[in-house]
Every structure is written in structure tokens, then in C-alpha cells.
Amino acid sequence: MSDNDSSTVRHEAPTRREYVKYGGVVVTGGLLAGCTGGNNSPTPDPESETETTEQKGYDAAIEPYGRATFDRPPETYATIGGAWTDFGFAFASEPTAISNLAEYPTRYYEQLPGVSFDTDGIINLGPRQEYGKEQFYELDVDMFLMDRILVANYAGWDEGDFEEITENVAPFTGSYIRNEWNGEEIGLEFEFPYYTFLEAISLAGELFNDPERATAFRELHEDFVSLLKSAAPESNPSAGLLYSASTPADGQFMIADPTVDGVATRQYRLFGVENAFAGIDLTDGWKTDYEGMLEADPEYIFVDSTLSIDRETFEEQFVTPLEESAVGSELTAVTEGNIFRGGGRYQGPVISLFVSEILAKQLYPDLFGEFPTLIDIPQDEQLFDRQRVADIINGDI
């Protein structure tokens, strides 16, 4: 590989960032290939054991793309703003850059003692559809903790674009884990997701070269899930999961499936929630009206990714129109008062704990306590140890 600017002065001994970006990502065949260090890989100095160790570095396998190689743990990274942002924060610090910073739910971190997500100085990448290679060059980060599948889908990047940025800036190290999707819309042959939630934690541990923290988070989640499942009744409540773009006032509902694999619906699967719309004919495979809602008649209605909306606004946009509709008012979820704000696509090692706790309280308030607001959950009704999470984030493992 060579620099795009042939006039750039090269160091005889590559800098730390040059180690990272020329380690690259290797992909054999298919779209979105990466780039290896090739003949530009530095030659270790046999007289310096420390230098040899640093130059050897480490690598991480990223399915389905290949391997990313680092000389040392990345200190700076950029994210799209989804689940991988939470993984990055859990293992390192705030991202250097993120898309649509105002939408990211930093309020969860505010509930952890001694933990803060400092938004000052974070670069807002803006709309994902407007990603340009120039702004990625300007970031000059150690790692792009984002899945290529979304960058390609949103911004229309192709294999050459990813090769160029990987070669000249840093590797892309995320993988699509939000939900089931085979990538056919943009011509990919891969099927996603490749990682379960716990596997994604392990991958983050490899990327940041921090297996101890990965183990701590995995054990924390395994214990938490065991607690929830042992306390919850053996039932499979039916739920209608709606996208937040739904407009009950207009009788338009965008349907999601709470049972599909992926981090975006993890909390629903933990409780064995059933998809109320399974078997219902949906327009374009994911839309329906009030008649379709009545046919499905879910016990619970959740609106995806609306936990950030205040209760008053949520009721105005979603609850009141359903209650005032002649058909909507007949729905079981409406008559029982089971219309809730739902968690969504941002779930990583930290946020998943909160949204799962909230769902437990929404489904079974008699067992787990009512869900008032995020900041008003009494300490004796909190289902996981906030201090333990903070300790892991802060490295006190």
C-alpha cells in the first residue's frame, strides 16, 4: 500500500497511529474488503524487547470481514451512534465522534455513580446519509467502531471506499448486530448478525485488548438474566412492537418483531415475549392499520426506542390516539393500560441492563416493582448493582 499523497514525509519508525491504520482489516472475497499491512509492516528491533512487544501488537477477528491489527489498544474511535457506542464506552471512554449526538441516550450513564459521558468535544458526524470520506480522514482516529453494513446502506459506500479509509486512516471494527438481516438490499452475500450479545462483549474485549473487563461484563449479564428468569413467571405474553414512526392518530402502524435475533430486541427475548403480529397479513411486510391491530390484539404494546420521550409527550403521541379511536379503544393493551415506551437499538453492556430492568417492571410490576421514571426507581427495587457496573467501566474489576 502507499499513501495517497506521495509528498507525505514517512518516518523510518512508524508512529503508533501508523501501526494501527496500516494493520488494516483483511477480507477474503466479497464486498467491503479491507487491507493488510503488507510490506509496510515494521521490522522489530531485536535489541529492544519493549519495542518488539509493541510492534507485534495484537489482532481481532471481525466476522464476516476479517481481522483488524493493532500495536496497542485504540485510544480514539468513532461510532455511528448505535449499540457499538455503548460497547466502546463500556470498555474505554467517550467516542471522538458520533452521528446525531443529541439522539444518543446518555441519560443511562447518569444513573451510575462516578461515571460520566462527557459530550463536550465530541464531534457530531451528522446524518449518516451524508457521510463523506473527507470527514473520516479529518477524524484521524485509531478505530471506526461501526459496522460497514450500515455505512454502505446509509451513505452508499462501496468496497473501494472502505479500502481507502482502512488503508489511510483506521480499520472498521463493528459488525451488524442490531437484528436479523441478510443484506440483500445492498447486494451483500453475508447473513447477520454474526454475534450474540455475549459474543459481541467478547469481541469488544478483543478490540480493546481487555479480556478481564469482557469477562466481568459477561458474568454480570449472565447473573442478571438468571435473576430475571428465575423470578419471572413462566408465561409468554403477546406484544405488539411498533416503530416510533407509527402514527396512531392517522391509523398507521409500523410493525417490528420482538422475537428476532439481535441486540435491539434482546430484552423481549429474555422474557419469552411472543410477536402478536405473527401470522397477520401486513402491508409491505411491516405495516398495518387499526383493523390489523385489532386482529392481532396484543396484550402489551411497546413503541420501540421511545424511552427517551417524556411520559406526557408519549401519551400525547401514542396513548391518547389509541384510547380515542373507536377501534383502538377495544384493544386489550389499551383497556388494560399496557401501552409502554420501549427500549431499542442502542443496547450494549450498560444500556441493556437498564432497558431489561425497565421491561421487567412494565411486564410484572407486582414482582419487580413499578417503573416510575429512570431516575425515580427506588434503590431497593433496582434489579442490578449500579456500583458494580460503574466499577467495571472504571477498571475496578
Rank of each mutant, 00 (worst) to 15 (best):
E167H: 13
F318D: 05
M1I: 06
D385V: 13
D223P: 06
E316V: 08
G114Q: 05
A278S: 14
R10G: 01
V26D: 12
T265E: 12
F217E: 00
E291S: 02
R388C: 05
Q55V: 15
G369M: 11
E199K: 08
A278D: 15
R213P: 00
L198K: 12
R213F: 00
A13N: 03
L228K: 08
I392K: 03
L228C: 08
Y176N: 11
Y77M: 03
T196Y: 14
I149Q: 15
E47G: 14
M146N: 08
G24L: 05
F162Y: 10
D118K: 10
R218V: 04
G174F: 07
P193N: 12
A333D: 08
A278H: 11
E191K: 14
G156V: 14
F314C: 10
E134P: 04
H11A: 07
E163F: 13
V327A: 13
A326C: 01
E274H: 07
D142T: 02
I186C: 06
W286I: 05
E295M: 06
G114N: 07
L220C: 04
I80K: 02
Y137W: 00
V141M: 01
S244V: 08
M293S: 05
P64N: 09
Q55Y: 13
Q135K: 06
G342L: 03
T69C: 11
F340P: 03
F253V: 03
S356V: 10
S308L: 02
E219S: 12
W286G: 03
L282W: 05
E12S: 11
F277V: 06
D261C: 07
L139A: 00
D59A: 11
F253M: 01
I392S: 04
Y290Q: 00
R128Q: 10
T43F: 15
A231D: 13
F197L: 09
V350S: 09
T259D: 05
Y19H: 10
P298H: 09
E212L: 05
S175R: 10
F253W: 01
D223L: 08
K287I: 02
P113T: 07
D281E: 14
S238R: 07
W181N: 02
T106E: 02
L207C: 01
G23N: 07
A232I: 08
Y195G: 12
A155F: 13
V263L: 14
P74F: 04
E219Y: 05
Y77G: 02
E180L: 10
N179L: 13
G160M: 09
Q387G: 07
Y22I: 06
E219P: 01
S235K: 09
A33G: 15
A333Y: 03
N168H: 15
W286A: 03
T50L: 15
Q55H: 08
P258T: 11
D380E: 13
L139Q: 00
